[in-house]
Structure formats: structure tokens, C-alpha cells
């Protein structure tokens, strides 16, 4: 096997890029190890405090479940919609694409005020509960990410032929969607889900303005009162989100993809 030659400029570039991401993390890590009493290195007291905090576990669980709920609702809502648009009304695709840009254009702070007004009369099991009101807002926030991921996924397959082949063999719409379409856009759906997870785990504005205690608002609270713990918490949340993504990848993966074997022709 031939050894791959790497240009020195490429290495320099790689180092600069890594530094860009790693230095803040390392700095945060070092900061989080300082002791509250002596302001000196090194103690894990900050980590221990957080891990034993009831608030920490409570809010992170809430945010995680919220993320899962948002993902579930988004997939249920958008997979059939995007499928239908691709299959039957492709001329509506740009319309959906435009609508998907709205959450980018409207700042969350305006969005939340609007939503709070809109749902003012709603029953309290919805309005006063994060799993009701917040989840609804997050589905809207996640819409662009879900839509563009799914749209790319559907464009990569021959929706018409696959659908017709499936129906021709006797499958209903539901069977076609579940057994033929979904497995072939799984990667796109996973991509959209990752992004949604990351968004919900980090969303502050809406949660704060509608006075719910989620993980990001907890971080903010700690940040204002306990600097070292806040640094530790940031790192922890970083790791946790990554772990959650890995878990999602694992769950969504199902059977591993077949390895690419050169076709014998």
C-alpha cells in the first residue's frame, strides 16, 4: 500500500482548526478544576457538587425527554408530509422550504411572545406543562432542521418508483411508508433528529421566557452564582449531548448497513 503524503500546509491547517475548538474546552476544563476556597488547582469538588445536585438531574432529564418528544412529534408530522409533497405535489416543495425558513428569520424571543399569546386560553395541562407548550414551540424551532434533512433524504431516492413498486406488490400506503420509504431515508431522519436533540438540549430563550426550568436555564442559574461549577457543568453538558447523540445513532441504526462489495458483473 502506498503511503499517503500529507502536505505540511494541511497539517498546519488541521492544527489551527483543532486549536480553535480545543483551547476553549481545555481552558474551561482547567478552570473547572480550581477550588472555590483557594482558587488553585486541582480539585474535582465542582464536579462532585453538580453530580450530587438534585436540580441537575431533574432539569437534564426534563430537557432530554423534551428532546425525544420533539423528535417523535417532528418525525410523525414531517415524514409523511415531505413524502407526500415529493410524491404528489412537488410544486409545493419550495413553499415548504420557505416556511421552514421562518423559524430562522423570526427571533425566538418574538416567537415565544407570539406563542404565549396564541395559547393563552389553552387548558392548563398544555399551557403550564413543558411537555405541552414547550414541546410545541420546539417542534417549530426544529422544523427547518427536520425539513431540510428529510428533503435531502427524499431527493436521494426514487420516491415514485419505490412507491409504485411497493403498491404494485400489494402494499398499502402505511406499509409502503413503514417498510419501504422509512428504511431508505433513515440516515436523513437520524440527521434531523441529531440536530433537533442538540437544539432542544441547548434552547434557553423560550424556556426562560415561558418560565420553565430546563437544563439550559439551570446552567444559566449556576453560571450566575457558582463560576467553577458552571464551567464543570458546561463540560458535562457537552459530554452528555454527545452521549445522547451516540445513543440515538445506536437506536436508529438497527441492522448495520451492508458493506460495499464490488459487484460482480
Amino acid at each position: 500500500m502506498r503511503r499517503r503524503w500529507i502536505a505540511p500546509s494541511a497539517i498546519v491547517w488541521l492544527v489551527v482548526a483543532s486549536a480553535f475548538f480545543l483551547i476553549p474546552l481545555i481552558a474551561t476544563f482547567l478552570f473547572s478544576l480550581q477550588s472555590l476556597q483557594t482558587n488553585k488547582c486541582c480539585t474535582s469538588a465542582a464536579y462532585s457538587l453538580i453530580i450530587h445536585s438534585h436540580q441537575f438531574w431533574h432539569t437534564i432529564r426534563l430537557s432530554f425527554v423534551l428532546a425525544l418528544e420533539t423528535i417523535a412529534i417532528s418525525l410523525l408530522l414531517f415524514v409523511p408530509t415531505v413524502y407526500w409533497v415529493h410524491l404528489r405535489v412537488p410544486r409545493f416543495r419550495p413553499v415548504l422550504g420557505f416556511m421552514a425558513l421562518v423559524p430562522f428569520v423570526v427571533p425566538p424571543i418574538i416567537l415565544v411572545v407570539g406563542l404565549l399569546n396564541l395559547y393563552k386560553g389553552a387548558p392548563s395541562w398544555f399551557y403550564d406543562k413543558p411537555y405541552g407548550f414547550l414541546a410545541t414551540a420546539y417542534v417549530i424551532l426544529a422544523f427547518p432542521y427536520m425539513f431540510f434533512s428529510l428533503d435531502a433524504g427524499f431527493r436521494a431516492i426514487d420516491v415514485h418508483t419505490l412507491t409504485e413498486a411497493s403498491q404494485n406488490l400489494g402494499a398499502s400506503w402505511r406499509t409502503t411508508l413503514v417498510r419501504v420509504i422509512l428504511p431508505n431515508i433513515r440516515v436523513a431522519a437520524l440527521g434531523g433528529s441529531f440536530l433537533t436533540l442538540a437544539i432542544v438540549m441547548g434552547e434557553f430563550t423560550i424556556a426562560s421566557l415561558s418560565t420553565f426550568q430546563t437544563f439550559p436555564t439551570y446552567i444559566q442559574f449556576v453560571n450566575e452564582t457558582q463560576p467553577y461549577e458552571a464551567a464543570a457543568l458546561s463540560l458535562l453538558s457537552f459530554l452528555i449531548v454527545w452521549a445522547a447523540m451516540l445513543a440515538l445513532l445506536f437506536v436508529g441504526r438497527g441492522r448495520p448497513r451492508p458493506v460495499q462489495v464490488a459487484a460482480t458483473r
Binding site: 431516492i157 418508483t161 419505490l162 409504485e164 413498486a165 431508505n184
Partner: peptide, 12 residues
């Protein structure tokens, strides 16, 4: 039973 012009096998 239909055989299509484009390759129509289910890729998964």
C-alpha cells in the same frame, strides 16, 4: 406484476 424501466428494487 410490474417490471419498471428504472431500477426499482428496494435498496434496503
Amino acid at each position: 406484476g410490474m417490471v419498471f424501466q428504472a431500477y426499482s428494487l428496494f435498496p434496503n
